[in-house]
Computed example of a mutant assay.
Amino acid sequence: MLAQRAQLPDGRWHFQHGPMDIVIGAHGSPASVDAAHAAAWQRFTGILDELVQELVALRRPVQGDCPVLGPIARRMWQACQPFQRSFITPMAAVAGAVAQELVACYERSGVTRAWINNGGDIALHLEPSQSVRIGLYADIARLGLDEIRDGILTDGQFDVSSVLPVRGVATSGWRGRSFSLGIADSVTVLARTASEADAAATVIANAVDLDDERILRRPACELKDDTDLGYLLVTVDVPPLEPDRVQQALRAGLKRAQTLRAAGLIWSAALVCQNQIVTTGDPATKKLENRRAHQQLGSVFA
């Protein structure tokens, strides 16, 4: 299958190739933005083949010296390296690393801001005095055709301005397109880069967990033949739980998030499970609590 692209009615671009499904928006002078879009498309067309060449190594747990050579593959490995004491493969950062590779095409004179949204894992380019608003859409299971047609109502929103050391936003959880070891409906992380946010969101979402026989888990390899998780048990269904049990799981994830924040690996995080939310308490995500956000990222920009 060849890479495909189409311009959306509002001027954004949609790039698609295999599992990569990307929406790109940019503002600035028309000539600069058009040149950036052209450069991004040229780079995008070769990414899938580049990653496939090193896929075997990318599906192995991160340990020792970096075994991969490509710039995106190395970025994936480096983003996951801080978490190598627990099981993690570079694939935990693939979506964010791809978005980060493409956003570099927009870091040029005349482009004031841009975003690369790779399935909810987002890389940002912000010139001074620029900002972007990101909407949290928590429970992807409740998204219906009517809402898609009439306009998506986000569960909460937060602004990322150029003064913040944040150029990456990522979300992970058991309801998302990737497997999770935990029960978080969503964990949204803001970090310096999209690849770092992607890896950290995976780790924190895995930590939102508790022992409960009602939670259904299955070996990842039974659900997907080529998964990098092998026989690890991943979450496939979470029934309604008592509020105190939900809080217990969220506290476990929040403890992990706060540790990563103290280590400088993330800027902030919002953790959601069954209509309850906790955050790391910084201004970027604190106001989400007032909106009672629910569960997986649906990104809205303004």
Rank of each mutant, 00 (worst) to 15 (best):
A97P: 05
P165K: 04
D34Y: 00
K286M: 12
M20Y: 14
L271C: 09
L233W: 03
A57I: 00
D150P: 00
R75T: 14
E289A: 10
T202S: 13
A194S: 15
L190T: 12
I88F: 03
Y106T: 01
A95M: 09
Q274T: 07
V103C: 11
Y106N: 03
L143W: 02
R60F: 02
L55T: 03
F301S: 01
S161W: 04
R251D: 15
L223V: 02
K287S: 15
I72K: 01
V278C: 08
R214M: 03
A197P: 09
I204C: 04
L153Q: 13
I277P: 05
I152R: 00
E222C: 04
F83Q: 09
I204M: 06
A284G: 09
L124R: 07
Q295H: 14
A123P: 09
A38R: 13
S299T: 10
T285Q: 02
G230L: 11
C66I: 06
D185P: 04
T227F: 11
G25S: 05
H37C: 03
W13I: 01
N290K: 11
Y137P: 01
V111R: 11
P219D: 01
G25I: 04
S86F: 02
A184I: 08
V94K: 10
L229D: 07
A293Y: 03
R12W: 03
I152Q: 00
A6D: 09
W13G: 00
D139R: 14
